[in-house]
Write a protein that binds this DNA or RNA. Structure first.
Lengths: 333, 333
DNA sequence: TCGATTTACGCAAACGATTACGTAAAGTTT
DNA sequence: AAACTTTACGTAATCGTTTGCGTAAATCGA
């Protein structure tokens, strides 16, 4: 920049203002500067600029796992949205570890990102790390697994309603002994889904059978395990509702292996609407969580909060869409 | 930092050195400084540090689409690997647009990232943008769709061998009129796969029938289209090899719709080993591209290049693993 | 035509860490 | 004990922009 200034017999201040389209600078000067900048392929040093301004055009994203459809979709939409506004994305994955999460919030704070979009790990129960970021004047938007007690914007799924709707659907189809595969009750989303499950049963005056509830069962392998144990222990059940599609898939595979007919003998419903649920046969009932909407809204909100500092917080839950498929359509089958 | 210095009656220089474990600083002073820094939750401003050092501990990743299994897997492994070395990831997606790609390389250069890992868009044919980054002393590692003429490290799939092996397998199973769904021939990976396809046929003295080759057919919808047109035009074929799993899925769906038996009447093989290929029935033969290895090696290599400036370039291709599944097992069926 | 505004730009001080260089004090050698 | 080395720290310049403030020239109003 000094060089440009020298070449044009002007000062770096003018160069800076010209490049940033400051109204203080005359039209012809601006053009001269821009022309020369282009000619020399000049690119301002963002460190210096950020240092001076105390902010960067970067948004941090912290999520448990990048390579899961739901999250990679969210990131995809966040990226598209913030890119339109000239922001960049810094991505961190915690692998569901609370320690890593804290560490990453710290690093992003140190890097002075303008905002952090975070899906809390399933281990996380306190939110002092988020408050630290807030104190450093970094906007925080929570998504997916949120802690409402922490006063930030959030966009989440209506887990309670989603689960309730699914179980109601199963009941409607005539299933009565509905197994529930859930995650660990440390995180709110699983607490909510379980409540939805229980309330739907209560509505139909069906008592909760603890034998039918499995926690820490949200992966393919744990789904397989749980289903095997159900069969091995001869526990009677006629449907499985899983908090996640992968565990539902595990159940699906075991049932097929045992030649148990889906949906006639056992109905299945998952949650998340992973790509494969539509493709297997019978296709698996699931709930779309609208990752596109979550990503887009989170991005828009954080940009709003960054650019105007008294933006009201956005606390919203999106109703998932139950997609009934073959695996739970007992009546038509 | 100034504050810390004042409080300890010392200079910012000492603080800086103490925090960076410089050997110039005495043991007790180091401890005092660190203790106070902790107490005040002090975090050095990375802008200032980066500005002074001219480098950042950030690696840029540019890929076509985040929400595709193959890429999100790669990112996942890149992230895990660089995190061990204290690097952060800046992620950009081009949506297969050359313009965006150039723009992002520029932005990352401006941000003075230490290195860029890039999977070129399928549109990209020149590499002046990469050379610009190299001139700015930024290490570049290409992955997946690479331009070998550009002298950087790369880690790619052995597309030629992978395709050839798949077609050989199909021939071995007795298929003779093998359709080929390919991407646009602008990018090297599709050129290579096509060559593999043709060479395998030649080995068996089968002439190439242009009617059986479809370009720009690598999505689910285009796969569906192509298969419909094959059937509508009554073109005889007994197998489909697709450069991508999604187009293979399209074919699979159309064939099922027409009650054409897989693999008895028509065999199918895809490429990429997407999650669903194993789950549909019949399961779809595909090739695992080892995204984990690609991600890990790319990350390791770029860190090597960043930290030691005469690291030899790594130019390597990984043989994909053909996973034969029901969709192409004519003999056993 | 003269004072009052506006326009267009330069000066210089930040921003916060790093580091080459300098220098006291302490330790070592002969 | 003199001379030399090492240790431990301070001084001050530097990285490349941005921006508050000041000012000359141009424009305007009456």
């Amino acid at each position: 920049m000094q060089d440009l200034a020298r070449e044009l017999n002007t000062s770096p201040a003018t160069i800076s203002r010209a490049l940033n389209d400051s109204p203080q600078i005359g039209k012809e000067m601006k053009e001269k500067v821009k022309a020369l900048a282009n000619q020399y392929h000049f690119r301002p040093n963002s460190f210096a600029s950020n240092l001076r301004k105390g902010k960067s055009k970067t948004i941090g994203v912290i999520i448990p796992l990048i390579n899961r459809q739901f999250f990679s979709n969210i990131i995809h939409h966040i990226e598209m949205t913030v890119a339109e506004h000239g922001y960049n994305l810094m991505i961190c994955q915690t692998e569901e570890s609370y320690e890593k999460e804290v560490e990453y919030v710290d690093t992003l704070t140190e890097q002075r990102v303008s905002g952090i979009i975070i899906a809390l790990s399933k281990q996380t129960v306190d939110y002092t790390h988020l408050e630290k970021a807030l104190r450093a004047d970094i906007s925080v938007v929570q998504i997916d697994n949120v802690i409402k007690a922490c006063n930030t914007s959030y966009i989440k799924t209506k887990d309670y309603d989603g689960a309730k709707a699914t179980v109601r659907h199963l009941l409607h189809q005539g299933y009565r002994r509905i197994v529930f595969f859930n995650g660990l009750l440390d995180s709110q989303i699983y607490i909510d889904r379980q409540q939805g499950y229980m309330d739907a049963l209560s509505e139909h005056n069906i008592s909760i059978d603890p034998l039918l509830i499995f926690t820490n069962t949200n992966r393919r392998d744990t789904g397989i395990e749980a289903t095997r144990s159900l069969l091995a222990n001869k526990i009677s059940f006629d449907a499985i509702f899983s908090s996640g599609d992968y565990a539902a898939l595990g159940a699906y595979l075991v049932l097929k292996e045992h030649h148990i007919k889906i949906p006639q003998e056992v109905g299945i419903a998952g949650f998340a609407n992973e790509y494969f649920t539509e493709l297997v046969s019978p296709s698996i009932t699931s709930s779309e969580q609208h990752s596109d909407e979550i990503g887009r809204q989170a991005a828009l909100q954080i940009i709003k909060e960054i650019t105007s500092n008294n933006t009201p917080l956005l606390k919203t839950s999106i109703l998932p869409q139950l997609i009934t498929r073959e695996s739970s359509r007992k009546e038509q089958a």
